[in-house]
């Protein structure tokens, strides 16, 4: 009847992908240990493609010694100070790539190494995303304002787990993955559709 753009689920080979949450938003999730920020062009492909006046490969975020650090390939300022090669990031740091692209780095405390990058207008990602997630081991969707992604409809939290290159979902209630209903920790693949009582989520490998 209708063809889906992604018919065969592939394992999580990609380091960044889109997570579409019905009624909530679209999120760019980066699962790699190093994440490139740069211009939204076909080649070179970066993890966080930005429509803004940035270089093709502008900066890289790496995970080292329990922290995110920023490696500047082009001039970057963190909290107004020029980054000399490498700067470790802390919750609330303002990262300025260019006149038009400013991000806020947030790592909600107590939720592990997963961090959020908040794009401050006017820059945007391609495609439009309502948030950028630098995923550590877990990504929490829930009602609580403390969750990484706040879904007011979701009565019980849904946790995505990224472990040694594979992706799982954990919930106290049933979750239907591509039509198969299950409980507890279940593996998911790229292109999967997750449906639970309150919300429906699709994981999509990035197109560009």
């Amino acid at each position: 009847m209708f063809s889906t753009s992604q018919s065969t689920p592939s394992p999580v080979a990609q380091t960044s992908w889109m997570m579409w949450v019905d009624g909530v938003g679209g999120f760019l999730v980066c699962t790699g240990t190093s994440v490139w920020l740069g211009r939204a062009v076909v080649e070179p492909r970066v993890d966080i493609p930005l429509a803004g006046d940035v270089q093709r490969r502008h900066a890289k975020l790496i995970w080292q010694a329990g922290r995110h650090a920023l490696l500047a390939a082009s001039p970057v300022k963190v909290n107004g100070r020029q980054v000399q090669e490498l700067a470790t990031l802390e919750h609330g740091d303002i990262v300025r790539l260019s006149d038009a692209v400013t991000l806020c780095y947030r790592q909600p405390p107590l939720l592990g190494p997963t961090a959020l990058l908040d794009l401050i207008c006017p820059a945007r990602t391609v495609p439009w995303s309502d948030g950028i997630v630098l995923m550590g081991e877990t990504l929490i969707l829930g009602q609580s304002p403390a969750a990484h992604i706040v879904c007011s409809e979701l009565s019980k939290a849904l946790i995505l787990v990224h472990r040694s290159g594979e992706l799982f979902v954990q919930s106290a209630r049933w979750v239907e993955i591509d039509g198969k209903r299950g409980r507890g920790l279940q593996q998911v693949a790229m292109g999967s559709r997750l449906v639970c009582e309150d919300v429906a989520i699709t994981l999509e490998p990035r197109g560009i």
């Binding site: 209708f2 579409w20 429906a200």
Partner: peptide, 16 residues
Amino acid sequence: AQGTPVMRFTYASGTR
């Protein structure tokens, strides 16, 4: 995915 979620949408992500 018809019918299950509270946010009931007829079409899932990826459909055309």
